[in-house]
């Protein structure tokens, strides 16, 4: 089965029809959940990043801040991915061939890998080499901000 066939199958699934044939305000609701999830995710990332760099809450235990913010990160990721997947399957063949969408997915994959490898390590110990900590935070912020920029491009390009 080629990629195109898979996309068509996805698009013709019952769940996809439920989304694509619903009122346009349902699509708007999915967009709102998607943006809200992204905001929650980024707010958590920004807070932990600023703490790693010792810009804010530097007297607070890093692991405590990371754990608390982590709850927001997971909620945000869950909301953004679920709503995003529903929007994608409703018009999979339209999204999949747009370069902005492909860029968003690539950046998202990179951001997630970074998040669960280097960033996780850096966010759990104040003893990390400052250069590595700074580099990880900057790369992570660029990747996640990039996801947001590429996402906004999808509707226009």
């Amino acid at each position: 089965m080629s990629l195109h066939d898979t996309l068509i199958t996805l698009q013709n699934s019952g769940l996809a029809h439920l989304v694509s044939k619903s009122n346009h305000l349902f699509g708007a609701a999915l967009q709102i959940v998607h943006v809200s999830g992204f905001i929650l995710l980024l707010s958590s990332l920004v807070l932990v990043s600023l703490r790693i760099l010792r810009v804010v809450l530097k007297d607070q235990n890093l692991v405590d801040v990371t754990n608390d913010a982590g709850r927001l990160f997971w909620w945000g990721l869950g909301l953004a991915v679920t709503s995003g997947a529903l929007m994608f399957i409703s018009t999979a063949t339209l999204y999949a061939y747009k370069w902005a969408f492909q860029l968003k997915l690539a950046l998202f994959a990179f951001a997630l890998i970074l998040q669960f490898t280097l960033f996780r390590k850096v966010a759990r110990s104040d003893a990390t080499n400052p250069l590595i900590a700074k580099g990880t935070v900057i790369a992570s912020l660029i990747a996640w901000f990039g996801v947001g920029f590429a996402g906004r491009m999808i509707g226009f390009i």
Binding site: I39, L42, S43, V46
Partner: peptide, 9 residues
């Protein structure tokens, strides 16, 4: 995401 996100926190 920065302003309203940190405000939410």
């Amino acid at each position: 995401s920065v302003a309203v996100g940190l405000l939410f926190i």
